[in-house]
Write a protein that binds this DNA or RNA. Structure first.
Lengths: 168, 168
DNA sequence: CGAGATATTGACTAGGCTCAATTGAAGTGG
DNA sequence: CCACTTCAATTGAGCCTAGTCAATATCTCG
């Protein structure tokens, strides 16, 4: 998993997304050729570089492909926005975990667990919460038997309960 | 000015953006042809419809044009995200006003005032704040001589002060 | 094993939300 | 032109969630 972030005027770091296997990284670079975000690998990863040139070639072969992808990103970002603007800490975490879970399933990693490769600090940064809050909420979710955590392995015990939280 | 919003499972409304003269509306519809957000005009407006067909034609004439636009939207959304995740009420309002101001200048409406056509409730919804908080902060900004408000006309008195707030 | 990072927990604080009452603005119809 | 209605804005009081600070505990890795 890769953490993508930006650094603001004060040198503070803001996590923008976490990308996993199969995700495209750096699409925002299309805006003027400037890279607007940085990225760090959170574990050992293999990346496949794709030149703009090649992207354009793909776009010619499958017109609208790239646009559709970008539009989806836009919609996804919108959902995140909604979460940050209107949900409390518990709901944010629930939504976050469900999103990670959904993506791990799409990748075919099945079962009902996945790897939380980022630190709680990073999760908090991404969700607009303090790291301590993330820890407290995760503990609370565990006490409520909604999830289980073993080191960095996360198990979902009650997905409907989580959904209830996430979608209020 | 047009307010673009989505409605969640509970029927609650979430303001996504405010669009003004010259802005494109409904680009998220490119994601699968489904309209993912609704829109309401906040005043009498004239809109120019643009069929997907026509968009594609434009894209053929100026390859990459649409992608670049979408990428910019992505970056813009990212900024909003940063604001929602990491700033307090005062900073959010300051950043919001500066953004509106910048856009009004781009449109050539110059001077240092612009029209706040949306309700404080809507602003709050957009920024993840309660309407009452928006009101309080605006009053406070006025008391600090950073802005002036007359009905729905907003005047910026101290743009550097606002910038200081917005960027912390 | 030791060091540095990360996680956990507690106590305290504060910023913003909720609820409620009042004022003010804008539009409607007689 | 003025009463009447309605919706937006304003202001206050009290509460509560999440942030901050600080102290351990636990993990990870060389």
């Amino acid at each position: 998993m890769i953490k993508s972030y930006i650094t603001d005027h004060n040198g503070r770091e803001h996590v923008v997304t976490f990308r996993g296997r199969g995700d495209l990284l750096g699409l925002d670079g299309l805006a003027e050729g400037v890279q607007t975000s940085s990225a760090v690998a959170l574990e050992t990863v293999a990346v496949c570089t794709l030149s703009i040139h090649r992207l354009e070639k793909l776009e010619r072969r499958f017109p609208g492909w790239l646009c559709k992808l970008l539009a989806w990103e836009l919609v996804r970002g919108r959902t995140t926005l909604q979460i940050l603007g209107h949900k409390d800490a518990r709901s944010r975490l629930a939504a976050f975990l469900l999103d990670l879970f959904r993506r791990s399933r799409v990748r075919g990693e099945s079962v009902q667990g996945f790897n939380l490769s980022m630190s709680q600090q990073d999760i908090g940064n991404y969700l607009g919460l303090a790291g301590e809050t993330v820890c407290r909420v995760l503990s609370s979710l565990r006490r409520s038997r909604l999830i289980d955590i073993d080191h960095h392995r996360l198990l979902i015990r009650d997905i409907d309960g989580l959904r209830g939280l996430a979608f209020n």
